[in-house]
Design a protein around this nucleic acid. Structure first.
Lengths: 142, 142
DNA sequence: AAAGATTGACTAATCAATCTTG
DNA sequence: CAAGATTGATTAGTCAATCTTT
């Protein structure tokens, strides 16, 4: 189970290293940045469900996450004309700025951590494994 | 940043899949099992600090984790004859049993998730990256 | 003083129950 | 009645302050 152990250990260590670098450079924490990246990918039309799936947390947790991002002025819930049960979540101008500058530091921190290592093969293998897993059982989903 | 994204996504998905399989088989959750595996590796002489480092959580969190494991009868804090500031944490008989049966299910769940994929190269690369990171900055440590 | 651990205040996750809309 | 989201109770983490022992 060496694979599982090192996967877990490295993921925790990398998250921690990147998060600390973000803090040193006066950026958002990695948790918030990770969320803003997900919101950004949905081009202003993110629903709470989408974020839940992207980030791998429950719908309830995603709802509260959006509460906090909204409180901090980084995203806004806009009415969904097609379905009044949900809102469409978009980045605010402040959210765009935080995502932009945070992403720059984020990329640099990862490049630094990789130190020239070619991770393309690892990336490919993990993609394959992730697909396998997604097919068999839908992780966090209800 | 495809590498970071898939690393994170897969780690979350794999954790979730294994955790659910443990639940279905009436075993401890993966969080607790992960902790018991760490305690077990220290052969009855684990200190709170050791677990903190192994698991990648703060010392305070590790102290509370041991509280819960102790409350559940899975580990015991024994006096440390060499240093009265710390205890030596050991598995109880119940803890040994839970670790044993949980590990069996754990291994099977991982094998199932890997589905014959050869992860040795990925493991080697992640080991190398983890070493790099450990040298530059000590993650969670105070 | 420093090291090891614990505790309290706070933050963020889970699950279950609930409310609204489709 | 399903689906989408929110909320409340609980659980587990962070950080900072503290206590004991070295």
């Amino acid at each position: 189970m060496e694979f599982f152990d090192v996967l877990l250990r490295y993921e925790v260590a990398l998250w921690s290293a990147v998060d600390q670098e973000l803090g040193r450079r006066g950026q958002l924490g990695l948790g918030q940045l990770h969320a803003l990246r997900a919101v950004g990918r949905h081009e202003g039309r993110a629903r709470v469900q989408d974020l839940s799936g992207d980030i791998g947390i429950t719908v309830g947790a995603a709802s509260k996450l959006v509460d906090r991002l909204e409180r901090d002025g980084l995203v806004a819930r806009n009415p969904n004309p097609a379905d009044r049960r949900s809102s469409l979540i978009a980045l605010t101008p402040a959210g765009e700025r935080a995502l932009g500058s945070g992403s720059t530091v984020f990329r640099a921190a990862i490049d630094e951590a990789l130190g020239g290592e070619d991770v393309a093969p690892v990336t490919a293998t993990l993609e394959r494994l992730a697909s396998r897993l997604a097919e068999s059982g839908p992780g966090v989903a209800a």
